[in-house]
Design a protein around this nucleic acid. Structure first.
Lengths: 190, 190
DNA sequence: CTATAAAGCTAACTACAGTAGCCAATCGTG
DNA sequence: CACGATTGGCTACTGTAGTTAGCTTTATAG
């Protein structure tokens, strides 16, 4: 029997592309094995079962999304940083819908990699808001508001929640515009 | 064999309460049957398999959430309506986390009940914004922004996305405050 | 009081995740 | 180069969940 040359990375990559194609919840070891031209039990030499595979996808997805956002916001601040972040966020989510689902998973408290990847992503958003000079509770609230708005829009869009034929792109830009407007007056706001 | 007196409604209710307890994805026919003190195949006399059960939960959840929001906003308008809606939305989602997950499902285009329930929920939000005098694209964009923000916050909260010990309630109120502020100037905003 | 429809059952099948243990390919070291 | 250890893939099997077929009993309508 000639060897297939699998690695953990190869298995995870195949799972990711499958997730983007058919949705994260439809990723199965049977299909992954078929795609890699291998029998199902062979996967266990590289990945510790389906749950572990989900964890690996989650960590990689969180760090890749964080990376994409961080890269988009280098050298810009305040309103420009929010714009850059928002565009990068939605673009990444639309390009990798299955991986994006994975970023929404609760970080497992006993998995250091999962916790670190989650924290890093939040930190990128937090840093992007530094130009607004917010501190303490103000900064926390603003970070949460920005994350919530971006995630909410992208999630509804991905779930087919915007049935009307109106331009989704423009709706997103207006939401981002509203956020920038509110952030500029954040400390005096309610 | 004495009869258990099941009905479709009884099965769905049990599934809903199970979903709230263990998460929608962990709802299984085995557990439902055990709770109802019945064998698994008996459930098929009332519900057409697991997928159909998910659809039933989805439709009921969407209409119950829509109902709760609509009830909260009777007799109030504009900023007060947004406040009422936002509070009702988050309260319902926290009270029924499993059902809330179900409301996020894509409406199945070939299932009239699913489509109707989804549209009705959007309509409630749309109506609540009528006091702002928005029309056409403005109204669509504002509806989408409000839905996205509320859903995004609640979903992140439910997923354990707010790790910091800061007050989540206050963060939510500030997000809602920011939205009201933007809605008041919606037409002139970017 | 009987005929029929409905409700629940057992038995069986399928699909998938996961485990045990075998055998062959590869790699490191003398 | 050779040979032993390690590793990667395999077959065979188990357990669990969803689903279907078809039987039996209960309830109900006439």
């Amino acid at each position: 029997m000639p060897r297939a040359g699998l690695t953990t990375a190869r298995v995870v990559e195949e799972a990711e592309s499958l997730a983007d194609a058919v949705g994260l919840s439809n990723v199965s070891l049977v299909v992954i094995a078929a795609r890699l031209d291998v029998r199902v039990p062979s996967l266990y030499k590289h990945v510790n079962g389906l749950d572990a595979l989900h964890s690996l996808i989650e960590v990689r997805a969180k760090s890749q999304l964080g990376e994409a956002m961080a890269r988009s916001a280098v050298g810009v601040a305040s309103a420009d940083a929010v714009d850059a972040l928002a565009l990068a966020y939605r673009a990444w989510a639309r390009k990798f819908p299955g991986r994006y689902e994975a970023t929404l998973a609760v970080p497992k408290p006993d998995d250091a990699a999962s916790v670190a990847a989650s924290e890093r992503t939040v930190q990128v958003v937090f840093d992007a808001l530094s130009g607004y000079g917010l501190e303490g509770d103000d900064a926390v609230d603003a970070t949460r508001a920005l994350r919530a708005a971006l995630h909410g829009f992208v999630a509804l869009e991905a779930a087919g929640g915007f049935a009307l034929p109106h331009d989704v792109e423009r709706s997103y830009l207006r939401l981002v515009g509203a956020l920038k407007h509110s952030l500029a007056h954040w400390k005096t706001l309610s």
